[in-house]
C-alpha cells in the first residue's frame, strides 16, 4: 500500500481522530492514500462510517496489539 500521508492519532479520543483525518484528507488528491493509526476503540466504527459517508475507500485495516491501522483512499 502506497501511503501518501501518514497521520498518528494514537492516544487521541473521539472526535479528534476523525477531525484530524478530515483535515489531512483536505490537502490530498483523489486516489491518494491516508494511513492513520489510532488507539481509541470507538475510532474503528467511526472511521468506517466516516469513510463511507465521504465516499472514501478503506483499502486495508489491521490491528497490532492496541493500535488500529487504516489505509483510506480519498474518493
Amino acid at each position: 500500500m502506497n501511503t501518501t500521508t501518514f497521520l498518528d492519532a494514537k492516544g487521541l479520543a473521539c472526535p479528534m481522530p476523525i477531525v484530524r483525518a478530515k483535515k489531512a484528507m483536505k490537502d490530498m488528491q483523489t486516489g491518494e492514500v491516508l494511513e492513520i493509526h489510532t488507539t481509541d476503540k470507538g475510532s474503528v466504527s467511526d472511521l468506517t462510517a466516516w469513510a463511507a459517508s465521504g465516499n472514501h475507500e478503506i483499502k486495508e485495516q489491521q490491528q497490532e496489539s492496541d493500535v488500529f491501522k487504516f489505509w483510506i483512499q480519498k474518493g
Partner: peptide
C-alpha cells in the same frame, strides 16, 4: 441522528 463527522 446525524453523525458528528457530518457536522464538522
Amino acid at each position: 441522528n446525524v453523525p458528528y463527522f457530518d457536522l464538522l
